[in-house]
Amino acid sequence: MISIENTEQNSILTVIFVVDDILFGLDAGIIQEVVQVKKITPVRQAPPYIAGVMNLRGRVVTVIDLGTRLEMQQVEINDQCRILIVEWKQEYIGVLVNSVSEVIQVEKSDIKSSPGNVKGVQQMFISGVFKRLDQTHACLLDIDKLLDPESRENEKDRVE
């Protein structure tokens, strides 16, 4: 197991997960825990990217469907699905993904800015791209933009 202490500042411990067959990564430091999907209560009339709310040990936690949020395929609930619990602005928020694959150290120098042909929301939410050992690419996500309820609306305004 890699402990955070013995790594220098020049690498980031990253959780790698899959949404709609694409690999994404989030800084492990902000993820409190990864839980299996139990019951998600839908919240009607809420924005479409919200999967619902769940009970996390007595706390009501908002669950975001990352697939819908990234304007990709909605995450279909199955045994592989996981919810990443993120603490964001003093609030716990669950990020629903298709599956979690691994936790790795990513050298900061390996992170490249996202290619220019990534457009729209994805470009907005992706802060960088890096290459994994098996030469596949994964996109690092910007959690602040991802979770900010206003961000997509702003983006749309800008585009229009």
Binding site: V43, Q45, A46, V53, M54, N55, V60, T62, E91, I93
Partner: peptide, 27 residues
């Protein structure tokens, strides 16, 4: 009564959420 998260701030339909006896959430 448990508060709902920031994402629901603008919604007028719900006043909050609660956790039921079986552990599920009800709005």
């Amino acid at each position: 009564v448990k508060p709902l998260g920031t994402h629901f701030k603008k919604m007028q339909e719900y006043a909050g959420a609660t956790i039921m006896g079986d552990g599920g959430v009800a709005l």
